[in-house]
Amino acid sequence: MLSINELRASIEGKEILKGINLEVKPGEVHAIMGPNGSGKSTLASVLSGREDYEVTGGSVTFDGKDLLELAAEERAAEGIFLAFQYPVEIPGVTTINFLKTAVNEIRKYKGENPLDAAQFLKMVREKAKLVSMNDSLLKRALNEGFSGGEKKRNEIFQMAVLEPKLAILDETDSGLDIDALRIVAEGVNSLRSPDRSAIVVTHYQRLLDYIVPDFVHVLYKGRIVKSGPKELALELEEKGYDWIKAEVEEVG
């Protein structure tokens, strides 16, 4: 589904990603962990098409297409979704209106007819229930004045509505209490299917208790320096990153 090859990217002349290799097959969940500043958010941004980053090398294919050739909105229409680490507040645009525009723009891209108001509302109500998203939030300006938890929940709600093939969650768990965490995880799990995949960026093992990954990768200084089964997350939780840093320095 997603194949990342020797991906290099920089911002303002500073190289952040220094040759990433990652293969995500349909139905798989990959966790990416690593210390702050490793480049996790950069990877997520580059995959979703943020133009601030310059890709200086490597390739990314998604469902056989050259992902790096596509604009951000085209990637979304192809089925990539990024749950932002810091969701943006947009005054004057309601969540519901925003999502309706998004849904219908994606349908247009796929050559489908737009949903009418009734169909859209019905679908949205179901998804809102799934992530316990309060109706009143939907009518408010997008993320404006939302609490940290509400913003994260809104990300998962949008994901549930857009039903992406590949969801990239960038620290969606940070700042959430255990109940909110469970709701977020349920939202993600409800989307799990043999043809949908996810990349879950997190600092904490606890999210992975709920969203059980197939693989865990450690990103450090712009490279994936270690990969392993889900147990690797437990080991990182216990021992921290120093041993990995030491391993990397040794290899040099």
Partner: peptide
């Protein structure tokens, strides 16, 4: 805000006019 909207599938022009 523009990138946020585009990342949800909204074209650049449509996102600009919404904003």
């Amino acid at each position: 805000a523009l990138f946020y909207m585009r990342s949800r599938g909204i074209s650049k022009n449509e996102a600009m006019s919404l904003l």
